[in-house]
Design a protein around this nucleic acid. Structure first.
Lengths: 201, 201
DNA sequence: AATTATCTTTTTACGTTGTAAATTTATCCT
DNA sequence: AGGATAAATTTACAACGTAAAAAGATAATT
C-alpha cells in the first residue's frame, strides 16, 4: 500500500524488523545477522529496511534498545511486588541473572564492548539509562531498612559490576572448571552484604 | 628465500604478523583489521598469511593468546617482588587495571563475548589459563597472612569478576555520570576485603 | 478519465571482504 | 642444466553493505 506510510505503519515495520533481527541474532550469531537474510525473513527486498532505518548500525541500535527495555521491564517487574527490602532485592537479582542466561544474545548485545558510539542513538541511551536506574533503586530500600550503609548509587553500581563481571566471565568461558557461576555469585553477594553492612553492630 | 621455511622463520613471521594485527586493531578497531590491510602493512600479498595461519579466526586467536601472555606477564611481574601480602596484591590489582586501560583493545580482545570457540585453539586456552591462575595465587598469600578467610580459588574469582565487571561497564560507557570507575573500584575492594575478613575479630 | 506528481519498493551495480584455485617464482637435489 | 618442490602471488568467486537507477503504486490535478 504505497503512498503516505503512516506513523503506525512505520512503527509496526520497525517492530517486526527488530524482532526478526533479534531472532536471527539468537539463531546464527552476530555474523548470521545480515541485511540480506533479514530481508529474506521479512519477505522484502534487501533495500527495503533502508526506508525505516538509516543503516545497519541504526538497526543494531534499535535492537539493543529493545533488549534494554525488556531487561529493564523484567527488573522492574521483579522489584514491583510487596515484601521486605531484602526479598525484593533478591527477586531483582534473580531476574537479572535469569534474563542474562535465558537471553544471552540480548545480554551480549546490551553490554558488548565493541559497539558503535551510543550517543548517536538517543533511544538506546534512554533505554540504557532506564536499566541503570534500577541498579541503585533497590539498594535505597536496603539502606532504608538498615541492611546496608552508604551511597545507594555507588553500592548499586558495585553490586551491578560484580554480578555483571561474573556473568560475562561465565559467558566468555573464563571461569575455571572448578568454580561455577552459582558459586561465584553466592560468595560475591555474601561478601558484599557483609562488606556494606552498617558498622555499629 | 623460498624453500624449506624453517621453524624460526615461521615463528618470526607469525610474530610480525600478530604485532601488525594488534596495531591495526588498536588504530582502526575490529573492522579495520582485514586480511588485506594486514598484508599491506607487512608488504606481502593478501594470501601469504594463509601459509602461516589457517584463517582469520586463527590469526585472531594468536593475537588474543599474545595479549593474554602479556597480560599475565604484567600481573606476574607485579606479584613477583617482595613485601607483605596485601602490598603485593595491591600491586597486582594496579597492574591489572593499568593494563586494561592502557591497552583497552587487548583487554577487549581477551574478554570479548563474541568470540569463536576457544577450545579449538590450544595456545589460546593455555594463555587464558595462565592468566586465570594468577587470580587465585595472590589470594593464597592474603589468606596465609590472615587477611582473608575462605577458598582462595573462589575468593580470587570473586575479586576478579568484580573488578572485571567494573572495567567492562566503564569501557562500555555504562557507568553513570556521577560515579566513575575509580570510585566503584575503591568501594568494591573495601567491601570485599571486609566481606571476606576472618570472622573472629 | 487521463495525466502528472509523489512516495515506496525493487533491481541493478559497485567496492570490499575472506579465501579457494590456478599460476608464477625461487630454491634445492640430482 | 633441469626437474622437483615449496612459497608467494595472481586471479577469481560468493557474500556483504549500500548507492543509484528503475519500476510500481497511489493521490492530486486537470
Amino acid at each position: 500500500m504505497p503512498r503516505p506510510l503512516s506513523e503506525p505503519e512505520i512503527a509496526e515495520f520497525r517492530d517486526k524488523l527488530c524482532n526478526a533481527a533479534a531472532g536471527l541474532f539468537a539463531r546464527h550469531g552476530r555474523d548470521g545477522f545480515t541485511l540480506r537474510s533479514l530481508s529474506a525473513e521479512l519477505g522484502v527486498s534487501p533495500m527495503t529496511p533502508y526506508r525505516y532505518f538509516k543503516d545497519k548500525d541504526d538497526i543494531l541500535a534499535a535492537v539493543r534498545a529493545r533488549a534494554f527495555d525488556r531487561f529493564s521491564q523484567a527488573l522492574e517487574d521483579a522489584f514491583a511486588g510487596e515484601g521486605p527490602a531484602l526479598e525484593r532485592t533478591m527477586r531483582v537479582g534473580d531476574a537479572y541473572v535469569r534474563f542474562a542466561f535465558a537471553e544471552p544474545d540480548s545480554y551480549r548485545l546490551m553490554f558488548d564492548l565493541t559497539q558503535p558510539d551510543e550517543e548517536n542513538y538517543p533511544d538506546l541511551v534512554r533505554a540504557a539509562t532506564r536499566a541503570r536506574r534500577m541498579m541503585s533503586e533497590h539498594v535505597r530500600n536496603l539502606i532504608a531498612e538498615g541492611i546496608l550503609e552508604g551511597d545507594p548509587v555507588v553500592i548499586g553500581h558495585v553490586f551491578w559490576a560484580a554480578v555483571h563481571g561474573a556473568i560475562v566471565l561465565q559467558m566468555a568461558g573464563k571461569l575455571g572448571p572448578d568454580c561455577d557461576f552459582a558459586h561465584i555469585r553466592d560468595a560475591t553477594m555474601r561478601a558484599l552484604y557483609r562488606g556494606f553492612a552498617p558498622k555499629d553492630r
